[in-house]
Design a protein around this nucleic acid. Sequence first.
DNA 1: GACTCTGCATATCCC
DNA 2: ATGCAGAGTC
Length: 743
Amino acid sequence: MSDPFALDDDPSPSPAPLAPVVRFPYLDGLNPEQRQAAMATEGPVLVLAGAGTGKTRVLTARLAYILESGLAQPWQVLAVTFTNKAAQEMQERVAGLVGPGARSCWLGTFHSIGVKILRSHGEAVGLKSNFTVLDEDDQLRLVKQLLNEGNIDPKRLPPAAILREIQAWKDKGLGPDQVPESDDPDKRLIPLYRQYQERLQTLNAADFGDLLLLCLHLFQKNPEALAQYQERFRYILVDEYQDTNVAQYLWLRLLAQRSGNLCCVGDDDQSIYSWRGAEVDNILRFEHDFPGAQVIRLERNYRSGEHILGAASGLIAHNAGRLGKTLRPGREGASKGAAKVEVMGLWNGEEEARQIADRMVALKKQGIAYAEMAALVRAGFQTREFEERFITIGLPYRVVGGPRFYERQEIRDALAYLRVVAQPDDSLAFERIVNTPKRGLGDSTLQIIHKLARAMNVSLLAAAVSLVETDEIKPKAKASLKAVLDNFQRWGSLLGGLQPADLAQQVLEESGYIAMWKADTAPDAPGRVENLKELYSAIEPFESLTAFLEHVSLVMENNAGQDADKVTLMTLHGAKGLEFDAVFLPGWEEGLFPHPRALDDQGERGLEEERRLAYVGITRARKLAVISYAGERRVYNQWVHPAPSRFISELPEAHIENRGMKGLDVARDFAETGAGWGQRFGKRASQTQPFTPKSDAGFLEGDRVFHEKFGYGRVLDVDGTRLDILFDKAGAKKVVDSFVRKA
DNA sequence: GACTCTGCATATCCC
DNA sequence: ATGCAGAGTC
């Protein structure tokens, strides 16, 4: 552990009187502000960390320092992040610094910490320790049930809107009894909120908002529990503080009240989650809320070239109401000669995808790894055009946060089965799959079960169990129901004995669920079977089904194949906290970015948030940032001819380089006259040099193949590594052979 | 109870 | 374009 090259000139006094003199090598590489932030352990501290100023490094160093200097034991430290990715990274880096002891830190997202606390102290707020965490599907189903029972027309009060409102209240830390009546002019939402919470309680379930709200209520209602946690957490660290909402703020304030050692790290310029209830005010008010707080600014940027920095700073300067930071290059002269930020105008979205893909290939040839490149979009649907292009030329890519694995229908169904096995009282899961595959248990049977469950005040499954002992339902339905229940009982008895992945496989096979998809002739059915198989491998690493289910409810992503060299495709929101050598920022157009919806909802504030989003995007780049906009684009199946985003004109001239403007003007002329499109495009397409990966083809005309995205298909033609394939569902595509396998 | 058809509304960002 | 709810039919 000792570093023979460590300089012995550490000017800071030892803060740990009890500890022997220990060297902290990870502090040596920090600049003075960073070091100050890492070592100011006592009292409230606000670290204003601009983009690329080494925030993560400071956080991990601070954590390691607290542990190694003996100020606290690992379990006495609470570190909260916003994303699982960030939590995981911090966990690993701290473990790398101080060893595996770091694993027993309380380190995770607000939500996962909330679960942990509620699992042990949830009784005080009406949750048994094995409560379920609901996903969005479950929530919607529940609200629809409530509307049904209350004879409310779901068209007048859309379930999704109700949930949004409830969520907003939860974000503010308000339970049904605390919402001011003026918040509900309609007079129906608050009662619905109350019913919704009551129903959750009988289901022994919590939604995402509850993980925070109920925790907060627990602390408020139960001083002993609070005291216990206050006692335990001597040091609290919060990442991305600018994105905390009121509930989280109150939660933190309570927890930190006793020790006072609260360190929040954030950047008001990167606050992009107001729609999720985040209050920039939290960070702006920190000094007021926590008197005597130290404020440390990290302004030296070590990440990006000078022009990237200049462009980003110039853009964000258009926002009012900032705390005001000036990012400057961390190393004098180091970034001189760096590339300017490029701005490209293209004819249309397709051309944009093409140019960007080609550029990525070119960069790869210059020695930049694909894993160091990303295209960051404003809205999820934008990824589609890129995917198609990437597939066509065989550019390896990964979509982060797209249609997510665990949100697919077949996966949710499968999970519902597993949930009922692991927790028979999970009525929402039970309801989801009693009649999937079809077993002749339709609405009327379900209604009877529901009624009985209510009358007996038990779960649906329990009600069903007693129902099959009676003659209240038709013999056919009864037999069918009994078979299902017997199955669940048997699977339940296997819980401890079988590997969870094997049990899952057994459940899906014996229930006929897999068979249902195998028999399905729909073009996407084979893909679903594939996904279910992938589910088994996702379960593999887990010790128990329960552990796996918990993981799924909190981490909606399936991180398989993370380490391959692929370009990243994701939303700007998803990119916060990440960095790449080369960043592409497509779709900078009015009507898309800034997103009109943000402007409608929030006006000027919305615009500023969109601008911060743009700032986040640019500052993800180390060496190269390329902004682009198209003259023509298809949005929601309509052609639009957007103007370039206003953000483009806000970029300081000195730091940008314009490219491709002429092409755009030509394109506009063509668009207006309606002439010449096909011709020009045909030419461009054939000029594009395809990227050819080294792979031994081995595919023959007529082969049946499987593609992750397009499903099954047949090879029509082979040209080197490029295949013409007629997909059963997606139609004819050109695909590089490394993207398909033999079926 | 299951299936098919039609009309309707709908479409950011995520733990 | 797509997905969903409701109506109508077997």
